[in-house]
């Protein structure tokens, strides 16, 4: 293949990655922005979403699209419920102390991995795509489903954005983010907001996972890369800034796609991790965050 089409392929792969990454990272960013909690278990919520999707599609008979639609609805609900439970049972009792919550979410991530290993097993298992469509470009064929992933992720993100900016619940969340104590003084139930935000963040990771699982199989250790990349994206975008997170997801997804195709996926991740460490050191507000 010549350079031009090869680059196009790399960029398209990068777009798919950006889309899923944006969903996952916006979830992480939301949790950090509102709750000031660094959720190390976020990758495991992603993994639980993929595993739940496998169970749901197995349980629903008939056309794969039916099972997939059910999974896209049920897996995020299930993961969100698990997250809300974890928030109420553990994080709340720690008073959301930053260091204690990091240790606690590391503990949670081990428990989720073990749960997946015990109930799902060590194998990687595929989920059928809801439809089978191949787009024939002049240079190569491309999966129609991958393009659908990008569109679906964009729609979900627009939905989240509308929810945050136009709904009353979104307003309450933004108020809590801006000033927790004042929000409480105005009668906002901060505990409930936190539980909702934590559940919503986890559900977004699960949605990303359900979208990706027909392309990449579900496995109990699959949460590692999404966690790392979400961290990278959230930090580069500026901690807690949703718009920055989106731009950074696009930047990291596309560059990861290009470097992975032309060089090696490992090199892409080495560069991204070093880049993020240097951003945190020299520009802690993120590349796109304003001065605080």
């Amino acid at each position: 293949m010549e350079f031009g089409p090869f680059l196009l392929l790399a960029l398209m792969e990068g777009m798919v990655m950006s889309a899923v990454l944006a969903l996952t990272a916006v979830g992480l960013s939301l949790v950090f922005g509102v709750m000031r909690v660094v959720n190390v278990a976020h990758g495991e919520f992603f993994m639980l979403g993929a595993v739940a999707a496998w169970f749901v599609t197995q349980a629903v008979p008939g056309h794969p699209a039916l099972g997939f639609a059910a999974a896209l609805l049920l897996a995020p609900l299930f993961v969100g419920a698990v997250a809300a439970l974890a928030d109420g049972l553990i994080l709340k009792r720690l008073n959301y102390d930053p260091e204690a919550t990091i240790v606690a979410t590391i503990g949670l991530s081990y428990i989720f991995q073990q749960a997946a290993l015990s109930f799902y097993g060590p194998d990687a298992r595929p989920v059928l795509a809801p439809f089978d469509l191949r787009l024939q470009l002049p240079w190569f064929g491309y999966s129609g489903y991958k393009i659908a992933v990008v569109i679906a992720a964009a729609l979900i993100l627009i939905g989240i954005w509308l929810f945050m900016t136009r709904s009353r619940a979104g307003l309450v969340m933004r108020a809590t983010q801006a000033d927790r104590d004042t929000a409480r003084a105005f009668g906002i139930n901060v505990d409930r907001v936190f539980a909702t935000v934590f559940a919503l963040g986890a559900a977004m990771a699960a949605m990303g996972a359900v979208l990706i699982v027909p392309i990449q199989q579900a496995h109990y250790l699959m949460g590692h890369d999404p966690l790392l990349l979400s961290f990278i994206v959230v930090i580069i975008g500026g901690l807690g800034s949703l718009r920055g997170t989106l731009v950074a997801a696009l930047l990291i997804g596309l560059s990861d796609g290009v470097i992975s195709v032309f060089f090696s996926p490992t090199l892409a991740k080495i560069l991204a991790t070093l880049f993020v460490a240097l951003v945190l050191v020299f520009r802690p507000q993120g590349l796109f965050g304003g001065q605080r």
Binding site: V103, G107, L108, I111, Q113
Partner: peptide
């Protein structure tokens, strides 16, 4: 893994 995870949670 669950033993390690639970130990971390109980400690913290």
């Amino acid at each position: 893994l669950a033993v390690v995870g639970l130990a971390l949670l109980i400690l913290v």
